[in-house]
């Protein structure tokens, strides 16, 4: 960081603000991960880090490299797209697995499955979308 004294001041302040906001929101999300009581509350907390936190740091990185190389550097959009697409998928898979485990253990405070279907995925698939579910 020694040859950076000709880096513009507005860009430095903006990059610093975005970095601090992003990492602060990530820290808040993981503090929620520690402090919430049940799993279904906890599954919300780290998404603060994957949306606002990752967004802030990725925009800071894009801005920094664009100003540093004097050309538009947008390759961090790849990480943004990937994280935005995959985080809901993985967390929904995880929450469904947790609901399945809680139901099979017969916890009393679990809501029943909608429309009286069994929680197992094999029995809920209708015959016409069974090949798609197998793949």
């Amino acid at each position: 960081m020694t040859g950076l004294d000709d880096f513009p001041l507005w860009a430095a302040i903006l990059v610093s603000l975005l970095l601090l906001v992003g990492s602060g929101l990530t820290l808040l999300g993981t503090i929620g991960l520690v402090r919430f009581q049940s799993f279904y509350e906890r599954v919300h907390a780290p998404t603060l880090g994957t949306t606002c936190g990752a967004g802030g740091i990725l925009i800071a990185s894009m801005l920094y490299f664009s100003v540093l190389q004097s050309r538009i550097a947008l390759h961090e959009v790849l990480i943004t797209l990937f994280v935005t697409v995959t985080t809901p998928v993985t967390l929904m898979l995880l929450a469904r697995a947790a609901i399945y485990r809680d139901r099979t253990e017969g916890k009393v405070d679990m809501p029943q499955a909608l429309s009286g279907k069994a929680p197992s995925r094999v029995e809920t698939t209708s015959p016409d979308d069974a090949p798609a579910a197998k793949g």
Binding site: L4, P8, L17, S23
Partner: peptide
Amino acid sequence: MSSTILLWSLTLSQWMLVAA
């Protein structure tokens, strides 16, 4: 000046990420 701002905010944000 700008390198000082960037260096301090990078250090602080890295420590916050380590805490996370």
